[in-house]
Simulated assay, not measured.
Amino acid sequence: MTQPPAAMPYPPPPPPPNGRWQPERVDPLPGTEFGLVQLRVEPITSGLAIGSLLAGIGSILVSTLVLCFGIIGASGGWGGWVGGAFTVLSVLAGAGAVIVGIVARRQIRRSGQVGQVRFTGAGLGMAGIICGSSGAGIALLSLTLTLVLQLSS
Rank of each mutant, 00 (worst) to 15 (best):
T146R: 08
R25K: 10
V117M: 15
L39S: 05
Q113V: 01
I72T: 11
L48W: 06
R106H: 11
G31N: 08
I138S: 02
V26L: 09
V88G: 05
T120M: 05
I138L: 11
Q150Y: 02
A97W: 13
S63M: 03
Y10A: 12
S46V: 06
S111G: 05
M126S: 14
I102F: 07
P9Q: 11
T120E: 15
F69V: 00
L140E: 02
I72Q: 08
C131D: 07
T87Y: 03
A55I: 14
R20F: 15
L67D: 10
R110C: 00
G101Y: 02
P11G: 13
A139R: 09
C68Y: 14
A139D: 09
V91S: 06
G125C: 06
P17F: 00
A127Y: 12
G79M: 06
P23F: 08
I60T: 09
L141V: 07
L67W: 03
V100A: 04
I44M: 10
D27R: 05
T32S: 09
A127C: 14
A122E: 08
P15S: 08
L143A: 08
V117P: 06
I72D: 10
L143S: 08
G79S: 03
P5S: 12
S46G: 09
I130H: 05
A7G: 07
V41R: 13
T87G: 02
G58C: 13
S142A: 15
T144I: 11
R118G: 03
S90K: 08
V114F: 13
G35A: 15
I50Y: 10
C131W: 13
S142P: 07
G77K: 07
T45D: 06
I57G: 13
G121Y: 06
T87E: 14
G128A: 09
L65I: 06
